Lab assay of single mutants.
Amino acid sequence: TTYYDVLGVKPNATQEELKKAYRKLALKYHPDKNPNEGEKFKQISQAYEVLSDAKKRELYDKGGE
């Protein structure tokens, strides 16, 4: 599973699309609303952290993490 899959976006997604997808999923899986989905929330946050940063995203796209 790639970070793009976690957020449900395509690899060519814009920053705005990433932000929108992250917010939607973060609300859905937030531990306050969904106590059993803490791990999913962490995955979503990690994916967004990497993909929202241009340098980290470039490194990730080249095969790094």
Rank of each mutant, 00 (worst) to 15 (best):
G38T: 14
Q46C: 10
S45L: 15
D53T: 04
A13Q: 01
P31L: 06
G8R: 06
E17C: 05
E16M: 09
E58G: 06
E65S: 12
P35Y: 06
K10Y: 08
H30W: 05
E16C: 09
N12E: 09
K42W: 09
D32H: 10
K20H: 11
K24G: 08
L51H: 00
N12A: 06
E16F: 06
N12Q: 08
I44M: 04
T14F: 02
N12K: 05
A47C: 02
L59F: 09
L25H: 03
L7V: 01
K20Y: 11
E49T: 07
L25T: 02
K56Y: 06
Y3I: 04
D61M: 03
Y29S: 03
D61S: 02
E17A: 07
S52D: 02
Y4Q: 01
D5S: 08
K42H: 09
L27V: 10
L25V: 03
D32W: 07
L18G: 00
S45Y: 12
V6I: 15
E17K: 04
K20P: 01
K20V: 14
K42A: 12
K10Q: 11
F41V: 03
V9D: 00
K42N: 07
E58Y: 09
Y4E: 01
E49D: 11
Y48W: 11
E49S: 11
H30C: 09
K62E: 07
Y29G: 01
N36R: 09
A13I: 05
Y48H: 02
R57H: 03
T1H: 12
L18D: 00
G38F: 14
R57S: 02
K40Y: 11
P31Y: 05
T14S: 11
I44L: 07
K56V: 05
Y48I: 04
A47D: 00
V6C: 06
P31D: 06
D5F: 05
A26I: 12
Q46T: 10
V9L: 07
G8Q: 07
G64M: 15
L27N: 11
V6D: 05
T1W: 14
N34C: 08
Y3C: 05
D61V: 02
E65D: 12
K55P: 05
P35S: 08
T1C: 15
K56S: 12
E58M: 08
D53R: 04
D53Y: 02
F41P: 01
K33D: 07
T14R: 05
V50W: 06
P11R: 10
G8T: 03
A13K: 00
E65C: 14
E17S: 05
K42F: 09
R57G: 03
K62S: 11
D5H: 08
E17Y: 03
P11Q: 09
L7I: 04
G63E: 12
Q46R: 10
K19W: 15
R23S: 12
K56M: 12
R57I: 02
R57C: 03
D32S: 14
G8H: 06
L18V: 11
N36K: 10
N36W: 11
G8E: 07
G8F: 05
L27C: 11
Q15P: 12
Y4L: 02
G63N: 13
L27P: 03
P11S: 11
L59C: 11
T1A: 13
K42L: 11
A54M: 12
K28M: 14
A13R: 00
Q15D: 10
Y4V: 01
Y22R: 01
E49F: 11
N36Q: 13
K28D: 07
V9E: 02
A47P: 00
K28C: 08
L59R: 08
S52K: 09
A47G: 01
R23N: 15
S52F: 06
E17F: 03
H30F: 06
K62L: 12
E16Q: 10
A26M: 15
E37R: 06
A21R: 05
E65T: 13
Y22F: 13
E65L: 14
T1G: 12
G8P: 00
E65K: 09
K19A: 14
G38P: 11
N12R: 05
Y60P: 02
Y3F: 09
D5K: 08
E16G: 08
T2E: 06
Y60T: 03
Q46G: 05
A47K: 01
E37V: 07
Y60H: 04
Y29N: 03
V6Y: 06
Q43N: 07
R23H: 14
G63W: 15
V50D: 03
Y29R: 02
Y4H: 02
K55E: 09
A21I: 04
V9Q: 02
I44E: 01
L51V: 03
D32I: 10
V50I: 12
G38C: 13
P11L: 06
N34V: 06
P31G: 09
R57V: 02
S45Q: 15
K42C: 11
K19Q: 12
E17H: 04
I44W: 02
K62T: 08
L59K: 08
V6P: 00
E65M: 15
K28N: 06
Y60M: 03
K28A: 09
P35M: 06
P11H: 10
L18I: 15
K20A: 15
A26S: 11
S45C: 14
I44R: 01
Y3H: 06
I44V: 09
I44T: 01
K19R: 13
K10T: 12
Y4N: 01
K33H: 14
K40S: 06
Q43Y: 09
L59W: 13
K20M: 15
A54W: 09
K55R: 12
D5P: 00
A47T: 01
N36E: 13
V50N: 04
A13G: 02
K56H: 07
E58P: 04
V9Y: 00
H30S: 11
K42R: 15
